[in-house]
């Protein structure tokens, strides 16, 4: 199949970027989207041009590295799919594909389709953990955890940290990401002691990074490659409210 690509090209963080058109001829429908970009890049290198820079690593949908907005939808038109798992058979011959980076102030573009998502790391650093020293853990089965709590925690924990939720949100909100991590830990008894601190600190870190606000459209959940539910956002909203109020009454 033959496609026309309009790809965002930007030299570095400070340079202005623009959409540049490329012909992607003779594309095998069995290719993954990233393999299609590989092929385009091989041709660009052959022609003496600079290849399109894009983030990718595991190419099996779990590392969360790949990121691109295709025709206005992060990770492209297929649901529950990362770009690396998106195959060209979902497009038609002659399609025009606009390929842009994930866009948000806390995700500055560093080149072409690559963005800096370290804001996510800073959010986890602020409280996305259980404070347990190596070697100090009790025997694992001393604390039975109801199966449904474990399952809910796993539903939340499936987040791959790709940032599509932010990219899809009209406000570039990171609520789904933050909620997934806080809900995973807050649902489990191991995470309970730090529950309030966790939500207060993680939300503060999220705000400080400059993400926008949730506007309850659930686009985040709709584009999420792991289909993380917006229910976790409600859980975060509830836990944050309780934590804020509890903290006010706690004295000090």
């Amino acid at each position: 199949m033959n496609l026309k690509l309009r790809v965002w090209r930007q030299k570095d963080r400070n340079a202005p970027g623009k959409l540049v058109e490329y012909e992607a001829g003779d594309i095998d429908p069995e290719m993954s989207f990233l393999e299609m970009l590989d092929v385009v890049n091989e041709r660009l290198i052959g022609a003496g041009d600079e290849p399109i820079a894009f983030d990718h690593d595991c190419r099996e949908g779990i590392c969360g590295t790949c990121s691109a907005t295709i025709n206005g939808i992060p990770h492209g038109p297929e649901r529950a799919t990362t770009v690396c798992q998106l195959h060209m058979r979902h497009f038609k011959d002659g399609d025009i594909l606009t390929i842009e980076p994930f866009r948000a102030k806390p995700f500055p573009v560093i080149r072409d389709l690559m963005v800096d998502r370290s804001a996510f790391d800073r959010i986890i650093e602020s409280g996305g953990f259980v404070s347990v020293r190596t070697g100090s853990a009790p025997e694992a089965n001393t604390l039975p955890i109801p199966k449904d709590a474990a399952e809910t925690a796993m539903d939340a924990a499936a987040c791959i940290g790709c940032g599509a939720c932010v990219a899809a949100c009209k406000n570039a909100s990171a609520m789904l990401f933050v909620a997934a991590k806080s809900s995973q830990l807050n649902t489990l008894p191991q995470g309970k002691p730090e529950k309030d601190r966790r939500v207060l600190n993680m939300v503060a870190a999220m705000d400080e990074a400059g993400f926008g606000n949730c506007t309850n459209q659930y686009e985040c959940s709709a584009v999420c490659p792991k289909t993380i539910s917006e229910d976790f956002i409600a859980q975060l909203n509830r836990e944050y409210l309780v934590a804020s109020v509890k903290q006010s009454f706690a004295g000090k």
């Binding site: 959409l19 606009t98 866009r103 926008g212 686009e219």
Partner: peptide, 23 residues
């Protein structure tokens, strides 16, 4: 805040399920 959170907008943007009312 939301405007500040995305200083450079998408050239092409689509939505999957955001309702008319919410938009």
């Amino acid at each position: 805040e939301n405007r500040r959170a995305r200083p450079e907008d998408y050239r092409e943007k689509d939505t999957i399920q955001a309702s008319y009312a919410s938009r």
